[in-house]
């Protein structure tokens, strides 16, 4: 098969369709840049969507749990080896993705005789100033984009992800109140999960507020906060809805 370019391209295209199809049922995740930090949010089963990677780094993802876990472990291994052999300050998201995760994902995706990673990710790096914070979307095929928007959504398919991201960037109030931001993100999460449109027959605010609360019966909201200022070297802090004073019922 590999000797025939057309069949190879067809096989890769088939893999792309397969991965995208598998990702459709995934629970969307979000990242928001704020003046005092970066907030990541996902809805899962606890320790399944939002993860600390290193002192200033975290990630959120959707996809197959085993694939998320493999990439998470690879990122943690690489970051800690770099910090130990050089210094914690030398661990950078740009290098971690460009020279570590992305080439591996691309190679794996194009090796048509091995199983592809079923995963879509958002990785974050907190810096000294909001201007130099990094949010990076990393895709199952190794493609990645450094994001400049305030809010980034991770979902599948790409069209609904863009619609959610656009809605949030237009409507999310300019606030630093984490509870208010989480409320908006969970509304967008519910709209995506329900497969509703962000343009036609868009649910009212009352419906959205009630919707995500009802949808959380057997799920856990995972929130990761990368603080810009902290007494500790590790800037990551897991938060719960209770910590933020958000009530489900």
């Amino acid at each position: 098969m590999t000797e025939e370019p057309y069949r190879w391209l067809e096989a890769v295209e088939n893999r792309r369709e397969y991965v995208q199809d598998q990702l459709k049922g995934g629970s969307p995740a979000f990242g928001v840049k704020l003046p005092d930090g970066i907030l990541l949010l996902g809805v899962g089963s606890g320790n399944s969507k939002v993860f600390e990677l290193f002192d200033r780094h975290a990630m959120t993802a959707l996809g197959h749990p085993a694939d998320i876990e493999k990439i998470r472990q690879a990122a943690i291994d690489a970051a800690h080896m770099e910090a130990f052999t050089r210094a914690p300050e030398d661990v950078s998201l740009r290098r971690l993705i460009s020279f570590g995760l992305s080439p591996q994902l691309k190679t794996n995706f194009e090796q048509i005789f091995s199983a592809p990673f079923i995963v879509e990710m958002l990785l974050a790096e907190i810096s000294n100033t909001p201007e130099t914070d990094l949010l990076v979307r990393l895709h199952y095929d190794g493609g990645f984009q450094f994001q400049s928007s305030r809010v980034i959504a991770v979902g599948s398919p790409a069209t609904t992800e863009k619609a959610a991201q656009s809605w949030l960037n237009s409507n999310l109030p300019e606030t630093t109140q984490k509870a208010e931001i989480v409320e908006w993100l969970l509304q967008a999460w519910w709209v995506l999960r329900e497969g509703k449109s962000f343009t036609e027959n868009f649910p009212s605010e009352t419906e959205r507020k009630a919707g995500w609360r009802e949808a959380l019966t057997d799920r856990i909201v995972e929130i990761g906060w990368l603080a810009r200022q902290s007494q500790r070297v590790a800037r990551y802090q897991p938060l719960s809805l209770n910590d933020l004073g958000l009530k489900i019922s």
Binding site: F51, F54, Q73, D77, H80
Partner: peptide, 12 residues
């Protein structure tokens, strides 16, 4: 420092 934090992050 590296070992304890590595364990906490990797093993959750």
């Amino acid at each position: 420092q590296t070992s304890f934090e590595y364990y906490r992050r990797s093993q959750l």
